[in-house]
């Protein structure tokens, strides 16, 4: 089981940096892509899992994200960090996937939230509460329309600015703001329904 991470695993001291690996790719060494995949696969998978809610589909889209990133490496600016770039690709791929399969069933299944990497605890009751909370939040996100899901992902899990989200989703900033505010309002209503 790979260590879950929101930002990707940073290279160890004796490992090449992301930029060095990208440079090797640029010199025609495709094997250099392997370490990049291993470094960011957990965070990319989490983007896909939050947006799709299905493990198998998330794995497939995560794999597709890396293939797409490899094809588009000439668009990557080595001066910028690799992780945010590839996670933006993942978010876009998932959004396209969601748009293509609309209307999708939003029924939750047990598999969806089964093996989450919750912090280790010796308190089964607390672990249960955390698992239920996580399941509720995931279900709330998955009940949003695809574009709302995407802006929540990019803003809250990838920390992008409005302008960056607009550029990623090819939307006007005004649309990003309205999607984001409405998505938050819907989430609040779903997670804390008015009594």
């Amino acid at each position: 089981m790979l260590t879950p991470s929101r930002d990707g695993r940073p290279p160890a001291e004796d490992e090449p940096s992301d930029q060095a690996l990208v440079e090797r790719l640029g010199h025609g060494d495709p094997e250099a892509f392997g370490p990049l995949v291993q470094r960011y696969q957990a965070s990319v998978y989490n983007v896909c899992y939050r947006l799709l809610g299905e493990r198998v589909a998330a794995e497939d889209l995560a794999q597709e994200t890396f293939i797409r990133a490899y094809q588009r490496l000439h668009h990557y600016d080595p001066q910028r960090p690799f992780g945010p770039w590839i996670r933006r690709i993942a978010a876009n791929l998932c959004l396209n996937h969601l748009e293509a399969r609309r209307p999708a069933t939003l029924a939750l299944d047990d598999e969806r939230d089964a093996p989450l990497a919750a912090p280790a605890t010796h308190d089964p009751a607390a672990a249960q509460v955390r698992a239920e909370e996580a399941a509720a939040v995931r279900a709330a996100i998955l009940s949003l329309p695809p574009h709302y899901r995407a802006v929540i992902e990019l803003r809250h899990f990838q920390d992008l600015s409005y302008a960056e989200i607009a550029a990623t989703l090819n939307l006007p900033v005004s649309d990003v703001k309205s999607h984001l505010f409405r998505a938050r309002k819907l989430l609040a209503r779903l997670l804390d329904p008015p009594g």
Partner: peptide, 8 residues
């Protein structure tokens, strides 16, 4: 606070 899911 949403925990990250593990990739298997």
């Amino acid at each position: 606070a949403l925990p990250a899911a593990s990739l298997n």
